[in-house]
Design a protein around this nucleic acid. Structure first.
Length: 322
DNA sequence: CATCAGGGCCCTG
DNA sequence: CAGGGCCCTGAT
C-alpha cells in the first residue's frame, strides 16, 4: 500500500515545547509502527476507519514552537476529517498542556530542578488509541521486553496493514473489533500464550461497541479505572499505564510494578535494585510531587532513558533485559 | 537436559 | 485475601 502526501497540517503547541522529548520516548518499545530521528517522527495512525501515514516535523524552536504534520494517504481527505485528526494529535501529545505551575513548583527542587531545565517543554505523550494501548498493555504482561516486542510485531504483521510512505515501510494497526474472524487458537499461533484469551475478549468488547474511548475521556478517573478493570485481562498494572498515557491524569500514582520498583529504588534512594525499597515507601516519597506526581516521575524516568541512549548503564541493562 | 522467573491477571478455596 | 496456574523464552 503506497501512499502519497495528501495534506499538511500546521500545529502550534503551547510554549515552551521540546519536540524530540515529546515525540520520542526512549522507554517505549513499540516497534514497526513508527520511526524517529531528531526533528522527525514517522507514525502510522488509524483514524476514523482509515490507516494513515503521518510525518511530524519540527519547524520551530523551544520558545517559538511549530510542528507540521504531513498526512499520507491514497486519496484526498476532506477538511472535517483533517480537523478531527489535528485535534486528536493535540490531545494525544498534550500540545495544549500548560506546564507553568509544574515548573514553578519544582524548579528549585534538588533532583527535579536540573531535569526540568534540561527537558523544558517535554510533554507526556503516546500515539496509541485506547484499543491499541490495551493490546500493548496485554503483551507487556509477564514478559521481558524482547518477548513483548516479538508478540506486538507478530500481531501487527498478521492483522495490521503495511504502509509505504515517505520512503518508509511501517505497519498500521487494524480497526478496533477487527479480530472478529480470528479465533483464540489463531492468536496462540503467534505465541502470545494465555494472552490470546484477553486479546480476543477485549476485541469483542470493541466490536460490540461496548466501550467508547471518547465517552470515557469525559468521565472522572474513578469511572475510567473501574471500566478498564472490568475488561478481561486488565489489572492494576495495565490500568496504571492507561490512566496516565491514554487518559492523561497527572495527579495520581497508586501502583508500582516490581521492575519499576527496582529502578525507582536505585534512582530515588540509590538503593541496590536487588534489595528494593518497599512500594509503600516509594509511593509515600512521590507524595512530595503532588499534584504533579506523574509528571515529576515522568521527567525523571525519561531523563534516565535518554541517558541510557548515550551511555551504558549496567545496572539498568540488567533490569530491563531487552 | 531440566528448571525457573519474567514489565500480571484470573480463579479458586 | 493468598497462592497456584498460565504461554513462551532464554538464562542458569
Amino acid at each position: 500500500m503506497k501512499f502519497k502526501k495528501v495534506a499538511s497540517i500546521n500545529l502550534i503547541p503551547i510554549s515552551p515545547f521540546n519536540f524530540d522529548a515529546t515525540f520520542h520516548k526512549p522507554d517505549h518499545f513499540t516497534s514497526g509502527d513508527n520511526e524517529w530521528k531528531p526533528g522527525i517522527r514517522w507514525q502510522t495512525w488509524f483514524w476514523k476507519g482509515k490507516c494513515l501515514g503521518l510525518k511530524f516535523v519540527n519547524k520551530g524552536s523551544l520558545l517559538k514552537p511549530k510542528i507540521t504534520v504531513g498526512v499520507f494517504y491514497k486519496k484526498k481527505l476532506d477538511e472535517g476529517f483533517l480537523d478531527s485528526l489535528a485535534e486528536e494529535v493535540r490531545y494525544r501529545y498534550n500540545l495544549d498542556l500548560d506546564l507553568t505551575n509544574f515548573y514553578k513548583q519544582f524548579s528549585k527542587d534538588g533532583v527535579l530542578g536540573p531535569i526540568i531545565k534540561k527537558w523544558k517543554g517535554m510533554r507526556p505523550g503516546h500515539p496509541s488509541s485506547l484499543y491499541e494501548y490495551l493490546l500493548i498493555g496485554i503483551v507487556l504482561q509477564n514478559a521481558t521486553v524482547k518477548r513483548s516486542v516479538q508478540m506486538f510485531q507478530a500481531l501487527l504483521e498478521n492483522y495490521g496493514k503495511q504502509l509505504e510512505y515517505d520512503r518508509k515501510k511501517l505497519w498500521c494497526f487494524w480497526k478496533p473489533g477487527g479480530l472478529k474472524n480470528t479465533t483464540e487458537e489463531d492468536l496462540r499461533l503467534l505465541k502470545v500464550g494465555y494472552r490470546a484469551k484477553s486479546i480476543k475478549k477485549i476485541d469483542e468488547q470493541f466490536a460490540q461497541k461496548l466501550i467508547n474511548e471518547f465517552d470515557l475521556r469525559k468521565t472522572d478517573r474513578e469511572t475510567q479505572m473501574k471500566t478498564l478493570l472490568d475488561l478481561y485481562g486488565v489489572g492494576p498494572a495495565t490500568v496504571w499505564y492507561l490512566i496516565f498515557d491514554v487518559f492523561h491524569h497527572w495527579d495520581f500514582f497508586n501502583h508500582i510494578s516490581p521492575w519499576e520498583q527496582k529502578i525507582y529504588s536505585k534512582v530515588f534512594f540509590d538503593q541496590d535494585p536487588e534489595k528494593p525499597v518497599s512500594v509503600k515507601k516509594l509511593l509515600k516519597h512521590f507524595e512530595k510531587y503532588e499534584p504533579h506526581q506523574q509528571l515529576a516521575v515522568h521527567y525523571i524516568w525519561e531523563d534516565l532513558w535518554w541517558k541510557r541512549k548515550n551511555k551504558h548503564i549496567p545496572w539498568l541493562e540488567k533490569l530491563i533485559r531487552i
